[in-house]
Design a protein around this nucleic acid. Structure first.
Length: 581
RNA sequence: GCCAAAGUAGCUCAGCUGGUAGAGCAACCCCUUCGUAAGGGGUAGGCCGUGAGUUCGAUUCUCACCUUUGGCUCCA
């Protein structure tokens, strides 16, 4: 069965779902129901709410009806005829009107006793072609009519569907496996972060082990950026509201920025972005063309009010620490600067073995130009530059209309989490407009003032989000250099504790993150703890090791490595840490 | 924000149709001194998410709120 057939199978099941629902809930209104990545869904307007407890009975009805679904028949109808047919279904009427407006054909598809407005794409004989064990109603969710939150909320029923029962079962199993690497679950098990109800939702706190990972990431990206000539700064986390009025953020993102008023009635805003502060740093002194590119960087936290229903562990939060940079450059430096940034990005991704990411170039929505600052000419030029750079670097990319920032187009990198949701990491935004708002100039070779061009760049995006993605990417088994505990020292019996402690202290002195497990437990239990905590190395110390004045080294990934000397151990670990193994 | 589900010990969970709660792991104490994924025994640990209501009596039923999880792009 090819992709098209799988699509037809899923789409046919969407019809079957609608038929089953309408049989059981006679006053429900069916709206739309496409096939999706792992199955299908259908949106309904129910007169009274249903819950996932109702799914089994709907599923049963589907299997019952399936036996009678022997043929899909299509019929072309006029607008009037079809409106008459769907006269009590306002959703279908709305769709029919749109089709009429576009001047397209209207077709009705019938199978069994169920007829639906549809453009086609079904199996010829569902009863024969669908294995009744190969689909399963999965979950229920709210979904706005046409995805617009101003519209009525409908009830969406999701189903999973594959060609065979075996494929369905394999998919469900794989999904369960993926959920085991959920960063929220692992974050708790490994003691990386916590969210307190009292502190507030969407405000995760990093515990000591999680903070080690964040610190390592921060140090790493700082060093990489310093090598490329970035200058690091520190800015306050609040600012007068006027700053954000000048930048244009206030008025567009008011709801997103927490505000406070001081005793004199002056309004302050918690920063939801760092650009205006960095612009004021740029403007604090005059610049020559010789100074450019000037790259201002900071790992700093921003605060954003998110819709409460959208918060998710570390991936979507109210406080996020960005590896933010602003590049102040001349117009003739744009392309080389972007190439440099992508070079950095690719080195970083390679280090983490991130091979599976998507590049999206976000441009203006051509139908809603008034949402953006700046002239058509500037926008077209900026968008063209980004697309050219992507082409030049041989990146596979897609163009997303309407996803640009209000001040300019951008390139975003997205990765998937363990259950397939996409999250933005790196962002590169080209900005010709904020330099105007903030009158950011440099003196050119000609002695005259020129406007700078600004690039807003974050490689990791947010450290919290990047950590969340990394936890799932590694399933909690971090490479040595990122591991909160790099090596565990395990004495076999109590009378080996003293020697073990010496080894432990030697490791600490050398800056290696070690733990000593001198508890009254048997060796099996201690090894089990080390493995459960996904610690990359542990050393075992017993009579044999003390006699040889060595240690036995074992690795999470490579198993038994045999006896080696203490100094040799330190040299080996330090070498691997330095090489970011 | 909206739709749905969930919230019982630090963690994972049990608790039938209302009679104020139990297990395993973790913690602590004692015994054990052990060579690669749990040695044995004991102790302590709970406002059953919060607040109201029904009831002689609520972890259990009703309502509200809080928090968590999944969904709200994929167009008949």
């Amino acid at each position: 069965m090819d992709n098209n057939n799988l699509h037809n199978l899923r789409h046919s099941l969407a019809h079957l779902l609608a038929a089953a629902v309408l049989e059981i809930y006679t006053d429900a209104k069916n709206t739309i129901g496409p096939s999706i990545e792992d199955g299908f869904y259908y949106d309904f307007d129910f007169s009274s709410p249903i819950s996932d407890k109702d799914l089994p009975k709907i599923e049963k009805k589907m299997r019952e009806l399936l036996k009678t679904w022997k043929e899909f028949q299509s019929e072309e109808k006029t607008g009037e005829e079809s409106k008459k047919y769907f006269s009590d279904n306002p959703y279908k009427l709305e769709i029919i009107n749109e089709i009429v407006e576009k001047g397209e054909k209207i077709t009705l598809y019938t199978c069994g006793n169920f007829t639906d407005l549809c453009r086609g794409g079904h199996l010829e004989n569902p009863a024969k072609e669908i294995d009744s064990g190969s689909f399963k109603l999965d979950r229920i969710a709210g979904a706005y009519w046409r995805g617009n939150e101003k519209n009525k909320m409908l009830t969406r029923i999701y189903g999973l569907a594959f060609e065979t029962k075996e494929e369905l079962e394999a998919y469900i199993k794989q999904r369960e496996e993926a959920q085991k690497r959920d960063h929220k679950k692992l974050g708790k098990e490994l003691g990386l972060f916590t969210i307190s109800e009292l502190v507030g939702k969407g405000l995760p706190m990093l515990m000591p082990k999680g903070n080690i990972i964040k610190t390592e990431l921060e140090n790493f990206i700082r060093k990489e950026k310093e090598k490329l000539g970035y200058s690091f700064v520190t800015i306050p986390h609040i600012a007068r509201k006027e700053l954000y009025i000048k930048s244009g953020h206030m008025g567009k993102y008011d709801a997103m920025m927490p505000t406070m008023t001081d005793e004199n009635g002056e309004e302050f805003v918690m920063k939801a972005m760092n650009c205006p502060h960095h612009f004021e740093i740029y403007n604090a002194e005059p610049h020559s063309y010789r100074d450019l590119p000037l790259r201002i960087a900071e790992n700093t936290t921003v605060y954003r009010n998110e819709k409460s229903g959208e918060l998710a562990g570390l991936l979507r939060v109210k406080n996020l620490t960005q590896d933010d940079t602003h590049h102040f450059i001349r117009a003739d430096q744009i392309e080389t600067e972007i190439e440099m940034i992508f070079g950095l990005m690719q080195r970083v991704y390679a280090l983490f073995n991130f091979n599976d990411y998507k590049v999206e170039i976000s441009v203006r929505d051509p139908k809603n130009k008034e949402k953006y600052f700046g002239s058509d000419e500037v926008w077209e030029k900026a968008e063209g530059i980004l697309i050219n750079s992507a082409k030049k670097m041989d990146l596979k990319y897609s163009v997303e209309e309407g996803e640009a920032a209000f001040y300019g187009p951008k390139i975003d990198i997205k990765v998937k989490d363990s259950i397939g949701r996409e999250w933005q990491l790196t962002t590169v935004q080209l900005d010709f407009n904020q330099p105007e708002n903030f009158e950011m100039d440099y003196t050119g070779e000609d002695g005259k003032k020129h406007r700078v061009v600004v690039l807003h760049v974050a490689i990791f995006g947010s450290f919290e989000r990047f950590m969340g993605v990394l936890i799932e990417h590694y399933a909690g088994a971090f490479p040595l250099w990122l591991s909160p505990v790099q090596v565990k020292v395990i004495p076999v019996r109590e009378n080996h504790n003293e020697y073990a402690k010496k080894v432990f202290e030697l490791l600490k002195e050398n800056g290696i993150r070690a733990e000593l497990d001198d508890e009254d437990k048997n060796l099996g239990g201690k090894v089990r703890d080390a493995k459960n905590n996904k610690i990359p190395y542990w050393v075992v110390i017993g009579d044999k090791e003390i006699e040889a004045n060595k240690i036995t080294l074992e690795s999470r990934d490579a198993g038994q490595l045999g006896q080696i000397g203490k100094e040799e151990l330190v040299t080996k670990l330090l070498g691997e840490i330095r090489n970011k193994k």
